[in-house]
Design a protein around this nucleic acid. Structure first.
Length: 292
DNA sequence: ACGATTATTGCGTTCTT
DNA sequence: AAGAAAACAATAATCGT
């Protein structure tokens, strides 16, 4: 009867010296050379469980828990040994000082490199022009110079920079679309975006719904007549002040749907709502206003 | 922190086939 | 008649300021 629990501790041989190994529950150690053959009780990082049925979206991988610490809290420090006297002690103090400074400088550099590569990746994934990347990187540096990183995640800043550049240049991208490819989530993006908006004063006007129309139109594969009509509607909406704090993406979806309703009728609320990342309910709100 | 907007869910209704 | 789509309502969550 070989119960799995009662397997002998010397079941395996050490790969280094071939000696016998012993296990203490956490580690399997070679009794001859001391090599740790296998170790358990590892922090395997986040493992979420979703309790909503049908939810497959929880990632099993991803960044560790504390993103806002550039080094995940792993630092090297030079200790203070009170037994040391005179020269040695001063030398150690000097080393400590230099070490600290080097760490600060390299930390800023590492953060920048990390942010830039993330920005580059995002811009590529979202298929945005290259000068958006440049602008986002500049913004990233300004944020760093202002010391906004403190307590916020780099991933958030990278995605927020990309999003912010889209905003100031009136390139229609929703937060959802950015975070879909980003390593950080929407909350991190918002935290970073708010900070930059407050401290740096981004010149971001509201996005006109019309800027979303062409892209959504092609995604839905509607006729050019419908698209043109949707553009007209989108402009009428802003003229008549029907947007009023509404999600411009949803408004754009509503314009597309309304246009299709007038001409093709080959578009359901659900389809239009999907490309706009809103629900049919939201879409209806402007759809009704548009008909009046 | 607040008010407005939006998401979500469920359900009876209307339209289509 | 059956199934899909749109409508409606209530509540929770999120957004913009």
């Amino acid at each position: 009867m070989s119960d799995a629990r009662s397997r002998p501790a010397t079941e395996n041989r050490c790969p280094e010296c071939g000696g016998a190994t012993t296990s203490n529950g956490d580690e399997t150690i070679c009794s001859d050379c001391g090599l740790v053959v296998a170790a358990d009780r590892i922090d395997r990082g986040p493992e979420w469980r979703s309790f909503e049925d049908g939810d497959e979206s929880r990632e099993r991988t991803g960044a560790p828990l504390t993103r806002s610490r550039h080094d995940r809290g792993l630092t090297t420090e030079i200790g203070r040994d009170t037994r040391l006297k005179g020269r040695k002690r001063r030398r150690l103090a000097r080393m400590r000082r230099q070490h600290d400074r080097a760490q600060i400088r390299s930390k800023a550099e590492r953060n920048r490199v990390y942010g830039f590569t993330e920005i580059r990746r995002l811009v590529g994934a979202l298929s945005l022009p290259a000068d958006v990347r440049e602008q986002a990187c500049v913004l990233f540096e300004s944020a760093q110079d202002e010391g906004l990183f403190q307590g916020r995640s780099l991933e958030g800043f990278a995605s927020a920079c990309v999003y912010a550049v889209c905003r100031v240049r009136s390139i229609a991208r929703t937060v959802e679309e950015v975070t879909e490819h980003a390593r950080g989530d929407a909350a991190e993006l918002r935290a970073a975006y708010d900070a930059m908006n407050r401290e740096l004063g981004l010149s971001t006007g509201p996005i006109a719904p019309a800027t979303y129309v062409p892209r959504y139109a092609s995604e839905l594969g509607v006729s050019t007549q419908v698209e043109r009509r949707a553009m007209e509607l989108a402009e009428r909406v802003v003229e008549e002040n029907l947007v009023g704090g509404r999600n411009p993406s949803g408004v754009a979806g509503a314009c597309l749907y309304t246009a299709a309703q007038e001409l093709d009728k080959t578009l359901t609320q659900q389809e239009a709502a999907d490309v706009a990342d809103v629900t049919p309910v939201t879409l209806r709100a402007t759809y009704y206003d548009l008909q009046a």
